[in-house]
Design a protein around this nucleic acid. Structure first.
Lengths: 155, 155
DNA sequence: GGTGAAAGGTCATTAAG
DNA sequence: CTTAATGACCTTTCACC
């Protein structure tokens, strides 16, 4: 789905100040409320905006340690490993990838010591041959989308 | 910050149906509207809920390819690499890590061919010694937080 | 609990592709 | 001719005091 600059500015506005609402957003964009409403509806229907769920910070919940684990999987065990990992709350996301590893997952833990427990739980499963973990020290660029939205709007 | 089961259920509710609002949420939780409001305020003040910004799907924007790049950095060039990567819209997040690589970044691209352009732009920088990229094929567990919230609420 | 405000819907009109 | 934007009006619902 392609978006124009108005869509882009609307997304930026809502990202910066989600509380302003459609009416205020339309005022700031200099368009009628119905227009802003129609753009938002279209963005949601097109899947560009998946929702407005709360953004929860794991660190504030007591899980300040993040790590990425690269997993090597026994052939044919992919599905089992997937369902195993989906039962571990500390596994925040899981991808299957090309390259040396077969899967990459993002983990959080209460501490470095707790991370050992999480990793043991993750890799304590038959289908996983090997795991290599990288602990996150800093996060210079937190998950962001606005620069990409701007680029997509300018195409 | 620690949360209880009511906080947890409130977060779950808002994650599933962000549009319901505080009043409807309080009804479903079986508590007074002021209680739900107070809980939400506390969660936001405590940083557990960082906001309600729109969740944008890069794939719907025309960037269906995701990859993770592990970067090895020349000593002392970390800050330069950081600011370089922050200028690339396709870099959605960047972490500094322990382990063999020094940094891990999440990339998106319009296609596998386009990914080459993105990687060239990312690694076309003096401070980066080596890069190894893993292209994401599937995403069996998309970024999630609810299981962790439930666990934190049950502690 | 009351009140001002916003969301969400519909409509006719107008502009632009 | 088709699509989109606009301003008007209306009703329900919510957020805030």
């Amino acid at each position: 789905m392609s978006i124009d600059r108005l869509d882009g500015r609307l997304i930026e506005l809502l990202a910066e100040e989600p509380r302003i609402g459609i009416l205020e957003a339309s005022r700031r964009l200099g368009v009628a409320r119905g227009t802003a409403q129609a753009r938002l509806d279209r963005l949601q229907a097109g899947g560009v905006i998946k929702g407005f769920g709360p953004q929860v910070d794991p660190a504030a919940l007591g899980y300040p340690v993040t790590a990425f684990a690269t997993l090597e999987i026994k052939q044919g065990q992919g599905a089992d490993v997937r369902s195993h990992l989906s039962t571990v709350p500390e596994v925040l996301e899981l991808h299957t990838t090309t390259g040396h590893g077969d899967m990459l997952c993002r983990l959080v833990a209460r501490s470095n010591a707790d991370l050992q427990r999480v990793i043991d739980r993750v890799v304590g499963f038959d289908g996983i041959v090997r795991a290599s973990t990288a602990i996150v020290m800093e996060n210079p660029v937190p998950l962001r989308i606005i620069p990409l939205v701007k680029q997509a709007a300018d195409d």
